[in-house]
């Protein structure tokens, strides 16, 4: 039973929610609309609809170059981070592990600290070691940033794994390597993939660490930032809409995977 004051609170909170969602989403939709039609004095000219901005964006070599760099960085960083996450989770659960707490802190720090700290600490140390900035340094930056997410998901899954599975495997004469290959790894697979998709989303958007490590190489967010400083163009609206679509697809993948993970814990 809802009484009156409760209903009023619900209505007010509901109105606030609707208003805030409008503020959060309206700019996004407006940019998407700007990318396909012209706007004069705040009025949308639907008859000017065209995909020209998308075509001219594809013929911009700096955008294509940034897109390729982003893909290289994201795939490399996610692959390294996923591999490391599995090794580190196995290590954390290994009885002989030493210095476990310190290593966990090191894993989580880049995710919790302001990105500016991670970015410039890697910048300073690569300068000290004489490593020039480029894709390799961006990959390192992204790897330490996304590792926390990948590690957390793999570790949670590993901790839920019944000991009996591993013991049964040993009893049946499997070696350590075989047990890992045929029992542990398949058990962890879904967590590794979810972590990888989440890490991919983070890497795709990462700006504040990359800016310190990029040198003269540009990832997509950095290119967008540079384009924004110059000014507005319908072409940027097209690129922005495309980036949003990619983020949406990745978000949908994560949502679907987490839902499967919840309903079917095996």
């Amino acid at each position: 039973m809802l009484n009156r004051s409760e209903r009023i609170a619900d209505i007010l909170a509901g109105l606030l929610t609707a208003l805030v969602l409008l503020v959060l989403y309206a700019p996004v939709f407006i940019s998407a609309i700007f990318s396909v039609v012209q706007v004069n004095d705040g009025r949308i000219m639907w008859e000017t609809f065209s995909l020209q901005n998308y075509v001219s964006m594809w013929s911009n070599p700096s955008v294509i170059d940034a897109l390729r760099n982003t893909a290289i960085v994201a795939v490399s960083a996610v692959a390294i981070a996923s591999l490391l996450a599995v090794l580190l989770a196995l290590y954390a659960e290994w009885p002989g592990a030493i210095f476990r707490r310190g290593i966990e802190i090191a894993i989580y720090l880049p995710f919790l600290l302001p990105p500016i700290v991670t970015g410039l600490s890697l910048l300073v140390s690569s300068a000290q070691l004489g490593i020039s900035r480029g894709l390799a340094t961006i990959i390192i930056g992204h790897t330490v940033f996304v590792l926390a997410v990948a590690y957390r998901l793999v570790l949670t899954r590993l901790q839920s794994m019944p000991r009996a599975l591993v013991e049964a495997s040993y009893d049946l004469g499997a070696s350590r390597l075989q047990t890992f290959r045929f029992i542990t790894l398949p058990y962890l697979a879904s967590a590794i993939v979810t972590g990888a998709v989440l890490a991919l989303t983070l890497s795709f958007d990462e700006t504040l660490i990359s800016v310190f490590l990029a040198g003269d190489r540009m990832t997509l967010p950095l290119r967008l930032w540079a384009m924004m400083r110059v000014g507005f163009s319908p072409e940027i609206n097209a690129l922005v809409t495309l980036v949003l679509l990619v983020s949406l697809v990745l978000a949908a993948l994560v949502a679907a995977r987490l839902r499967i993970g919840n309903s079917n814990p095996e």
């Binding site: 700019p27 958007d205 700006t207 924004m228 609206n237 922005v240 983020s247």
Partner: peptide
């Protein structure tokens, strides 16, 4: 919105 690119959100707010 957590999944949307930070720089893109900034751009869209600026365009409003």
């Amino acid at each position: 919105p957590l999944f949307m690119s930070y720089i893109v959100k900034l751009y869209t707010i600026r365009s409003v």
